[in-house]
Design a protein around this nucleic acid. Structure first.
Lengths: 155, 155
DNA sequence: GTCCGTGCAAAGCGTTTGCACTGTC
DNA sequence: GACAGTGCAAACGCTTTGCACGGAC
């Protein structure tokens, strides 16, 4: 199933051109997916998603595309606490954390990243120049917390 | 050069026993290094350090030792923003960040981690159960900032 | 003496790279 | 038409795993 309508495709291509990148199929697809969904993807998730539209696209290409988009400021790469690479649209990070029980990726509430970044900036800036924090963490997501409480299981 | 004096060795072995782990050479050495220095190590740094005392210790053993110590709460693993694994003594993270210019690993000022964790905890807890944040980030370390300012270089 | 932990070697997996070709500009 | 970007395949580096031996308890 095609996931990019013409108008979006147009925008995506414009963004690419603005940064001096050629608008190729892999790039428009990836940027379209990232911009449209607003969520994060592991490389494999992103690959599968891209392949729905264009099965011929290689994983190695995906790595190069993600790198190009990141360097151009059109996407952001980060790492979950366990080291898994995740990609999302825009470079401004908001952070995510992982449920220790079910492994689901969770987003922090909006605004929290900015708060934390401000806090860190104030603490670091007398000495150094601050670009931005990366926020991660671990906990129990609502569902798993409820399950744990209800069953009164330890752990 | 031997890095563990007898008394420290004794403490280290006691800690291991307390957690139900056998006090083997690789474990005592690694825990000794981590506990003594208080800083973080990449796996390779740690390996080199351990090999100064016991060259026969394998890298694969080191991975297993680190895993065991982490699970026992005697060490903490985390990831730099670029995905590199780092290990340090104790599990209570304080976070570190990387200088975007020279790549040096920097520690956040003491207390900051607790502040941030508290902030995040408050924001997340109504919904979920919070274990702890992982804090990372990027900036210019004091030296590189000074250099950049002095030369008035862009970037 | 038992069994956990290690050394050793090989496999695994995510990621990168070289090269010739294709498609964008 | 030039050259950036891709597909393909192979290499690479970090990490994990299987197995038999050795050492901690």
């Amino acid at each position: 199933m095609r996931t990019i309508c013409n108008m979006e495709r147009y925008n995506v291509e414009k963004q690419l051109h603005k940064r001096g990148l050629r608008a190729t199929l892999p790039r428009t697809l990836v940027l379209g997916v990232l911009a449209q969904s607003g969520r994060h993807y592991t490389m494999e998730e992103l690959w599968r998603r891209v392949q729905e539209s264009a099965p011929e696209i290689e994983l190695s290409t995906l790595y190069r595309v993600v790198q190009a988009l990141t360097e151009a400021g059109l996407a952001g790469e980060s790492r979950l606490p366990n080291g898994v690479r995740v990609v999302e649209g825009r470079a401004d990070e908001h952070g995510h954390w992982v449920c220790s029980r079910c492994g689901e990726v969770q987003h922090f509430p909006p605004g929290l990243w900015e708060q934390v970044n401000q806090l860190v900036k104030l603490a670091v800036e007398p000495e150094a120049l601050w670009f931005g924090v990366q926020l991660g963490g671990a906990g129990l997501c609502p569902r798993c917390r409820d399950r744990a409480e209800r069953c009164d299981e330890p752990q």
